[in-house]
Design a protein around this nucleic acid. Structure first.
Length: 604
DNA sequence: TTAGGGTTAG
């Protein structure tokens, strides 16, 4: 790729709409063309040395405050005569990368190379590869890797670790593992960091047990796993709901002399909060504060969000009090936690109050906040308000992402307009957004619930033909649609074929089929399935029992209803509103039936 | 290595 008269080492991103760099470069070039004030040579040399020393200190201590300051420093470097070494430039680019300004970092390297004549070294190109991978331009990352050889630069194991990480970030962990094996066979020694990257990739795809296996491999090689590796797996266990396993690993790391840091604590606190284990989460917060580790805004936001999701608004507000006291936050994450819960609770006035409050306090709403509100207004059946916010969002220069599109599609389905939703689904690509599995699930459910089963079936057929890896959620939705339309035989056939597709039938799928069988009056078959699911290691939940009891009550199978209501009580499950209503209805028309009366009023 | 928005059964 030719850039001026020199061969650029960085592939062009403009094909992919990454144009921000051009603007950055225009500003930079303009500023750089201004002549520096004339200083006598020895004086300039002294000033230059002083500038370089202070720049290195600033970069290494992490004290560069923002992107503007980093760009000013870059201009300072570019003005020096003679120009500083590539190492100083690279140090500064590294700072920009830590601020997550990946496109700008790439632009800076490009400018060093093509305008200043500073040739990148291996470390500079490692940084560029990392930026390209983070921006999901992994193919370009590999092409920079290829260029390294042409330039006579030897890639290091860090180059390879960066590429392995790039594959993981893209969700391509299998290829990342393959590359890691290949790299090792080629004689590049991997280290704890490479294994850490693979462990992170495995955790992100939900395979925490495989990640744990790689931790053991680190130990077998007599390397010492670091706090990042442990924290990654602790987080993985927490996200899988395996908080006990997370705690065991936490104990293990401490026993092995690796001290948990703020991230490790934060992961565990979130794991505990997600399962309502408030007391233990509180103890952990106290413990960390006792050892002088103050929770940061991210940790506090996790607490706020968890409290909001539990409906504990007062406690959430008290965390905000703590934030104000310590001068951290609230920020857009904090406000969104409140907005989201108010939207879920149909308290749209409250949600809008928070929305206006954040704006009045100078905190700009982002796409997540707008999407929460659009979801809330649709849920409140106020399409006009939802559309108005979509407009407002556009005026702020925020483009809807795939989540916003999914929300709009779901909203139209809820509003009884599944065909309009289908239009959006098939046209969103024109706006640069492509449906993902969750979008497909939403439209499919809308079509099924809108009694458009044949449309739903052809959509699934289309999805099967494409490269989408359909999951159990998609098939569960379709099964529910088929059962709802009375196509029980076809549903049963599909249900039976799911294991052969490599799909794990879950409690939703079983419950949907039990409901379908009950609807057709096939109570014995439904009961068999209920038994069967336990044998298959999938435990029925509150909903499963309610669905089955409702089936029994519809057929006036009172003795069997009582049997299953008793089982539910013993297991600590509650009778939901629909089941209760059916019992009351039965009692009002069968006042003479003493069995269910005795059951309801027995002393327990 | 850690945080917020969209999916399936009652």
């Amino acid at each position: 790729m030719v850039l001026g008269s020199k061969v650029s080492r960085i592939p062009c991103l403009s094909h992919f709409g990454v144009v921000h760099q051009t603007n950055t470069m225009a500003t930079l070039s303009d500023s750089l063309s201004v002549h520096s004030p004339s200083i006598a040579e020895p004086e300039r040399h002294r000033n230059g040395t002083h500038f370089l020393i202070s720049l290195r200190n600033l970069c290494r201590s992490g004290k560069v405050k923002n992107l503007d300051e980093a760009l000013d420093l870059f201009q300072g470097l570019a003005r020096m005569k003679p120009l500083p070494s590539v190492k100083d430039f690279t140090l500064l680019v590294g700072v920009v990368v830590r601020m997550k300004h990946y496109t700008t970092a790439i632009s800076l390297v490009k400018h060093m190379d093509s305008s200043l004549g500073i040739e990148p070294d291996t470390i500079t190109l490692n940084i560029v590869i990392n930026c390209l991978c983070r921006l999901k331009f992994i193919a370009f990352g590999f092409s920079v890797f290829g260029n390294m050889f042409k330039l006579g630069l030897e890639p290091t194991h860090m180059t390879l670790t960066t590429l392995i990480n790039g594959l993981c970030v893209q969700g391509n962990v299998a290829q990342a593992l393959e590359l890691a094996y290949h790299v090792e066979n080629m004689g590049y020694p991997l280290d704890v960091y490479t294994y850490g990257v693979l462990i992170n990739g495995l955790c992100k795809m939900g395979d925490t047990s495989a990640a744990l296996g790689w931790l053991r491999k680190i130990e077998q090689r007599n390397w010492k796993p670091n706090v990042v590796v442990y924290s990654t797996i602790v987080d993985g266990f927490c996200k899988d709901g395996l908080v006990c396993e997370a705690f065991n690993l936490w104990l293990e790391m401490r026993a092995k002399g690796v001290l948990p840091n703020l991230v490790t604590y934060t992961c565990l606190i979130q794991g505990l909060c997600n399962f309502g284990r408030w007391k233990e989460a509180g103890s952990l917060v106290n413990e960390m504060m006792k050892i002088g580790m103050m929770p940061d805004l991210q940790t506090l936001n996790i607490l706020v969000d968890a409290f909001c999701k539990e409906g504990k608004i007062m406690q959430a507000k008290s965390v905000i009090g703590f934030m104000t006291l310590t001068g951290k936050g609230p920020d857009v994450f904090t406000y969104n936690s409140f907005i989201h819960i108010y939207c879920l609770q149909n308290k749209m006035n409250e949600a809008m109050k928070v929305f206006h409050l954040m704006i009045s306090r100078g905190c700009l709403p982002d796409i997540v906040v707008f999407t929460s509100l659009i979801y809330g207004w649709f849920k409140d059946k106020n399409i006009n308000k939802a559309m108005h916010l979509l407009d407002e969002m556009g005026k702020m220069g925020l483009l809807p992402d795939v989540v916003t599109w999914t929300t709009l599609i779901g909203g139209l389905c809820q509003a009884g307009r599944p065909l309009a939703a289908k239009e959006l689904f098939f046209n969103m690509h024109k706006y640069g957004q492509f449906p993902n599995l969750q979008t497909c699930a939403v439209i499919l459910d809308g079509l099924c619930k809108g009694h458009l089963l044949s449309e739903a079936l052809s959509l699934v057929e289309m999805m099967e033909k494409s490269n989408l890896d359909l999951n159990i959620v998609i098939y569960s939705i379709l099964l529910d649609g088929m059962c709802g339309a009375g196509k029980l035989n076809a549903a049963w056939e599909l249900f039976s074929s799911l294991p052969a597709k490599g799909l794990q039938i879950n409690v939703y799928t079983y419950t949907i089929m039990i409901k379908g069988l009950c609807k057709q009056g096939l109570l014995d078959k439904a009961e068999d399935l209920l038994m069967n699911m336990e044998e298959n290691g999938c435990l029925p939940n509150n909903c499963t029992y309610n669905v089955f009891v409702q089936g029994l009550l519809t057929k006036k199978e009172i003795a069997r209803s009582i049997k299953y209501l008793t089982i539910m009580m013993d297991k600590g499950f509650s009778v939901d509103a629909a089941t209760t209503e059916m019992i009351i209805n039965y009692l009002s028309t069968n006042a003479g039936d003493t069995k269910i009366r005795e059951f309801l009023f027995q002393k327990r």
